[in-house]
Simulated scan of single mutants.
Amino acid sequence: MIEFETMAQRHNYILDQLEKNEVVKISDLAKKLDVSIVTIRKDIKTLENMDLIYKAHGLIYKNNPYTQDINVNEKSLLNVEQKRDIAKFAASLIEPNDAILIASGTTVLQFAQAINVTNGKLTVVTSAMNVALALSGKANIEVIQLGGVVRPNSTSVVGPYAEDTLKKLSFSKLFLGIDGIDTDYGLTTSNLLEANLNHLMIKASQKTIVLTDYSKFGKKGFGKICNLNEIDHIITDSRITEKAKEDIDNLGVKLTIV
């Protein structure tokens, strides 16, 4: 229990907790500060009116947790160094004669660009047209592009054609990009059809490896892909919060920070 004499001190404590954790329960704050729910709600309302926090369903966030469908060209300009480091490590996980599946997203595009096969052969199936193009000229790589309806914002395909093809294939690894990862709710993307395709990709793969920079943690997209405990490995960067690290570890999911 922490006692503060002024409202300003409580506000600073709340903001400090959000810097350390991507999401905080309002009821937990009331207990820690030893104040009533009414008092803490007034504090939250004040901070919300100042655009310093975002409140939803008994939780507070530093920023709006709900993602939107942003064009891939805009996404490619965000957190470029982090995505590049994540991609390089992910590329090191490919083994000789692997058959892998690559979903869509700017981080997995960086991953595709980082792949260099010098031993054996690599078979790649992908829903992303830009990933297929990035790999098409590389030695020892066979690329299979899934068919379907092309989403302009992601230059990837969705729909029954891609889904039917996946049901007939099996992969050693899936490299998955996401729009949001919430340790309670799970993995999400901003498009429902893409979320459904990603779910089928997980079912078709022996191991699912998620490539995501720190900014996707605590976020939620429109379409849910799966629960967090349904994946095997997350590769992210050093700006991930301690709370997210702890939650991932508790679920038994492997975490690599680059």
Rank of each mutant, 00 (worst) to 15 (best):
M1D: 06
T6F: 10
A8Q: 14
I14D: 08
L18K: 13
L33F: 09
L33T: 11
V35L: 03
V35S: 05
K42S: 04
K42W: 04
K42N: 09
K42L: 00
I44Q: 13
I44V: 15
K45S: 07
L47Y: 06
M50S: 12
M50P: 00
M50R: 15
L52Q: 15
L59R: 15
Y61N: 06
K62W: 00
N63L: 03
Y66M: 06
Y66E: 11
N73D: 14
K75Q: 12
S76F: 13
L77P: 00
A90F: 07
A90G: 11
L93A: 09
I94E: 08
D98V: 05
L101A: 07
T106L: 01
L109P: 01
Q113F: 00
S127D: 11
A132L: 02
L135Q: 04
S136R: 10
G137N: 14
I141A: 03
G148V: 11
V149R: 15
V149I: 15
N153P: 00
P160L: 10
Y161P: 01
A162F: 01
K167V: 05
S172G: 14
L174P: 00
L176E: 04
I178Y: 07
D179G: 13
T183S: 11
N191H: 12
L192C: 05
L192V: 15
L193W: 05
L193G: 10
K203I: 12
A204Q: 09
V210F: 06
D213S: 11
F217C: 02
K220C: 04
K220F: 08
N229S: 10
D232W: 06
H233L: 09
R239M: 06
G252R: 06
V253G: 03
I257T: 13
